[in-house]
Computed example of a mutant assay.
Amino acid sequence: MVTRKRLTQFLVSNGYKRGGVDKTLFIKNVDSDIVIAQIYVEDIVFGPTSNTLVQEFVKQMTNELEMSMVGELTYFLGLQVTQSEDGTLISQSKYAKNLVKKFGMESAKHAKTPMGTTVKLTKDENGVKVDPTLYRSMIGSLLYLTASRPDISYSVGVCARYQDDPMESHVTAVK
């Protein structure tokens, strides 16, 4: 098993620069091409801009660190990845479906758009209290979903304001 420390040392010694903010991100410039490698626990996701760099990276990793290629990236941290000649599509449809199931909303009516910007959500001091842990879980899950759904960012942000003392009206808005 390769440790993160050993992998980091190997990448840095082979010309990769470590990210300033994200210490698990490594970038190497080779002429006009680039290799980006992201470490997550024991996995590496990498993406060079040329086939030559792909082959070089795989060769280095398999020879030096006895790592194996699992194949093309299709699913990572709740993100579905589809690659084609036209580009790369990242979606979270599976993650979103799991959220619907997790929060018992399989039979709920679908909304075609996020909460409107004219909706006024208030503190609702006279409302029925709900479990704040459940509410925070819903908000956290939706915040992660904004990675591929920036259209819900505003709505999630408005609902996130009420995590301290959520009421039934807030849960309704989240749903």
Rank of each mutant, 00 (worst) to 15 (best):
M1Q: 11
M1Y: 01
T3A: 00
K5S: 05
K5Y: 10
L7A: 10
F10Q: 07
L11R: 11
G15M: 14
Y16H: 00
K17R: 09
G20T: 08
V21T: 00
K23L: 08
L25I: 07
F26H: 01
F26T: 06
F26V: 07
I27S: 02
K28C: 01
K28A: 10
N29E: 05
D31V: 10
S32F: 06
D33K: 13
D33V: 08
I34L: 15
A37I: 07
Q38H: 04
Q38M: 13
I39V: 11
Y40K: 01
D43T: 07
V45G: 09
F46T: 12
F46I: 01
G47W: 04
P48S: 12
P48G: 01
T49N: 10
T49M: 05
S50R: 00
S50Y: 01
N51P: 14
T52C: 11
V54Y: 01
V54P: 06
F57E: 05
V58Y: 06
K59G: 12
M61A: 08
N63T: 11
N63Y: 00
E64M: 09
E66H: 09
M67S: 06
V70R: 15
V70L: 13
V70M: 14
L73H: 14
L73R: 14
T74G: 15
T74V: 01
F76I: 11
F76M: 01
L77K: 11
G78A: 07
Q80D: 12
V81T: 09
T82E: 06
G87N: 12
L89R: 13
L89N: 10
I90P: 07
Q92Y: 09
Q92G: 08
S93E: 15
K94W: 06
Y95W: 06
Y95Q: 03
Y95K: 02
Y95S: 01
N98Y: 05
K101Q: 15
K101Y: 14
K101E: 15
K102M: 14
F103Q: 07
F103M: 09
G104V: 00
G104R: 03
E106A: 02
S107K: 15
S107V: 05
A108P: 11
K109V: 10
K109G: 06
T113P: 03
T113V: 06
P114A: 08
M115C: 02
G116P: 07
T118G: 02
T118R: 03
K120P: 11
D124T: 03
N126P: 02
V128D: 13
T133C: 02
L134I: 15
Y135C: 01
R136D: 03
S137Q: 08
S137H: 10
S137C: 15
I139N: 03
L142K: 05
L142A: 04
L145R: 01
A147Y: 13
R149F: 11
S153N: 00
S153M: 15
Y154G: 05
Y154M: 13
S155C: 11
V156Y: 04
G157Y: 02
V158K: 02
C159L: 14
A160M: 05
R161I: 01
R161P: 05
D165A: 04
D165Q: 11
M167I: 12
E168K: 12
S169L: 14
S169I: 05
H170M: 02
H170D: 02
A173S: 10
K175I: 03
K175G: 13
